[in-house]
């Protein structure tokens, strides 16, 4: 069986709990937020590395984001990835899923050698798992979304177990394919400089390097626009702490619970 060349799409995102909305300007305040590799993408990296151990081949990382994303890609290199590529240019900024998946597909084509693209289930900063299917469409290949497990079949196809509502299915698709990996399906390995394969730094490509029409990128290439932004407000909660022995607390709780579930 042939070796697998895998590209993992990874995004650098602000830590969700550190992002706030500016009360007056009603814009996102990310300045204070620290960044991290999108946690679901760690599961995709781990699965890619496990597949490389089984079948041989290479694992490349691909990200689109600002220059400060490069050090975060080093984390993936220190987990054992062979190469890392960063698409970085002001022209990529403000992209919704259409130009994002387009730019990533162009980056994948530029990397050239690949059998399989792995993505995370979703990016934690706002989008919701639509990019992987978009990449698959731009590349014209098969997709498996919400995959929990992957294996190569003897006939060279990819077998994937994927989640469906209220169950799961096992499907086979020909390679090349794009897969989104279900969050939490494995324990991502730790970074360790011993695992680093190549001394090469992250390769950075601008929009010009991709040779595409800039009007298809970033804000300009995005069909959707963000209207209003606001801080999510949950209803004010009572935050009433019950005191006493467990029995006493339970009695108080039972009273309140009965009132809450009684009709009307």
């Amino acid at each position: 069986m042939k070796a697998l060349d895998i590209i993992v799409c990874v995004k650098v995102v602000p830590k969700p709990e550190e992002v706030t909305v500016h009360a007056e300007t009603r814009t996102l305040d990310r300045a204070q937020a620290r960044s991290e590799l999108n946690p679901p993408d760690m599961n995709a990296i781990e699965l890619a590395l496990a597949l490389r151990e089984r079948h041989g081949g290479t694992v490349s990382l691909l990200s689109m984001g600002p220059p400060f994303a490069a050090p975060y890609l080093e984390v993936g290199l220190a987990m054992g990835a062979d190469r890392a590529y960063l698409l970085s240019d002001r022209l990529f900024g403000g992209a919704d899923t259409l130009p994002t998946s387009f730019a990533l597909a162009k980056g994948i084509e530029k990397i050239g050698e690949w059998d399989l693209v792995l993505c995370g289930e979703e990016s934690s900063d706002g989008a919701t798992g639509q990019v992987p299917a978009g990449i698959a469409e731009w590349l014209g290949c098969s997709q498996i979304t919400y995959a929990m497990d992957l294996a190569l079949l003897p006939d060279g196809r990819l077998r994937g177990e994927r989640e469906i509502r209220g169950g799961h299915e096992v499907i086979a698709v020909p390679l090349p394919a794009v897969v989104s990996v279900k969050l939490g399906v494995n324990e991502p390995r730790f970074m360790d400089m011993e695992r680093r394969r190549s001394p090469e730094p992250v390769t950075v490509w601008s929009a010009g390097n991709l040779g595409v029409d800039p009007a298809w990128l970033g804000f300009e290439g995005s069909p959707t626009v963000v209207g209003a932004v606001w801080q999510a407000k949950s209803p004010e909660r009572q935050r009433r702490f019950l005191e006493g022995m467990p029995q006493e607390k339970a009695r108080l709780l039972a009273e309140q619970i009965r009132a809450a579930v009684s009709p009307q």
Partner: peptide, 21 residues
């Protein structure tokens, strides 16, 4: 749903349109 999203992401790109997910 898993299949609704699987389709929506693919369709939006094929139709070259916007998707609010």
């Amino acid at each position: 749903t898993p299949n609704g999203r699987d389709l929506a992401g693919r369709l939006a790109v094929r139709l070259r349109t916007g998707l609010t997910a």
